[in-house]
């Protein structure tokens, strides 16, 4: 039953997000848009962390790469090909992620991989900061929101509300694609590798190949989120790829719950809600936000989604459900679905 409740909640949230421009202040609509993009970023990051067990601290670099590809192309006047530009940004992100992953995953894992990816993102940021053709430290401002036609008539996304609706649809598609990947054979193989890489390798799984594919796919979606971000913010700067940006999906994931597909998205919206609610408390905002986050992490170690899952299970069965269990032997039947409550 909880699965149906989850689907209902997702559908309801989607409708609410779509109608947001009719309901609230433009500032809140913009914030919701940014949170949605960051949510996609976090879900894509969690494909690595939650499914493949790889911690990358440099995803901000791929996010900024996608944003810069879109910004440069739109400023060059290619807005007519806007949808193709999103694909181009995703392909670019995928290629760079593949090249980074091909080196990094062979040489390192765990904390070493995290530091290596962080260093690579920093190198990219330093290059962007020194490259005057793309605005150096000031970045690229005045990015137009496109209007284009694809035979269906003119699509004008120049207003904030229209771009918001497009953003909701595009993010919905990206999330659906990640969901499909994570819940298919590929996702199950990744989970098997995360749980016991040696056993998975023994069963004939090319663990390096799968990790590299996960790294590349994560890069594709992270860059896609960056591409959607550029026309939303209408400015891109090298700081998009800084360490703070790279740690945001980690924070969202821990807050929302790494074991749930929807956890990073829930964490993102919760984090933004706390920040927005405390925006007028200048000087106290960080303290309040920190205390709330600490409390959430201590009270709900499996994140908000884990807490909800327990709540639904107890409502369903009258007692708390056991933690999600994944049998190691599942690695041996990768084609079959695992029992899960997400």
């Amino acid at each position: 039953m909880s699965r149906y409740i989850t689907y209902c909640l997702v559908a309801l949230s989607g409708v609410l997000l779509l109608l947001l421009p009719l309901l609230v202040n433009p500032g809140l609509v913009h914030l919701a848009g940014v949170t949605l993009v960051m949510g996609v970023f976090a879900v894509a990051w969690n494909l690595l962390f939650g499914y493949a067990g790889l911690a990358s601290f440099g995803s901000g670099g791929l996010f900024s790469l996608g944003a810069y590809v879109m910004a440069i192309s739109l400023r060059a006047g290619y807005e007519q090909s806007f949808l193709l530009l999103i694909v181009l940004a995703m392909v670019t992100g995928g290629i760079v992620a593949f090249l980074v992953g091909a080196v990094a995953l062979r040489r390192s894992s765990g904390i070493y991989l995290a530091i290596l990816t962080l260093a690579m993102a920093e190198v990219l940021r330093q290059i962007l900061m020194r490259w005057h053709w793309i605005g150096a430290e000031d970045g690229l401002p005045n990015i137009v929101r496109p209007h284009f036609s694809y035979g269906l008539g003119l699509i004008d996304l120049s207003s904030g509300a229209r771009y918001h609706v497009f953003l909701c649809l595009a993010c919905g598609l990206l999330i659906a694609a990640i969901w499909w990947i994570a819940h298919g054979r590929f996702g199950r193989t990744l989970r098997a590798i995360r749980l016991d890489p040696e056993r998975a390798a023994f069963m004939g799984v090319n663990t390096y190949g799968y990790k590299l594919a996960a790294f590349t796919l994560s890069g594709v979606f992270v860059a896609g989120a960056g591409a959607l971000y550029a026309p939303l913010a209408q400015i891109v700067t090298p700081d998009l790829g800084n360490m703070l940006r790279s740690t945001q999906p980690i924070l969202f994931t821990l807050l929302g719950g790494a074991s749930s597909f929807w956890g990073p998205l829930i964490g993102g919206f919760l984090f933004s809600a706390i920040e927005y609610g405390t925006r007028t408390l200048v000087g106290l905002q960080e303290i309040i936000t920190g205390v709330i986050l600490l409390a959430v992490v201590l009270i709900f170690p499996t994140g908000i989604s884990g807490a909800f899952r327990k709540l639904f299970a107890s409502l369903e069965q009258g007692e708390p459900a056991p933690a999600r269990k994944v049998e190691v032997s599942d690695a041996g039947r990768l084609g079959k679905p695992l029992t899960q409550r997400v």
Binding site: N25, P26, G27, L28, V29, H30, L31, V34, G139, G160, A233, Q234, I235, T237, D239, R279, V282, Q285
Partner: peptide
Amino acid sequence: DDRNTPDGAVTAFREIAG
């Protein structure tokens, strides 16, 4: 507070202008 990011500034601006 713009939190020293263009995002923060744009969100604050849109909220106040709204």
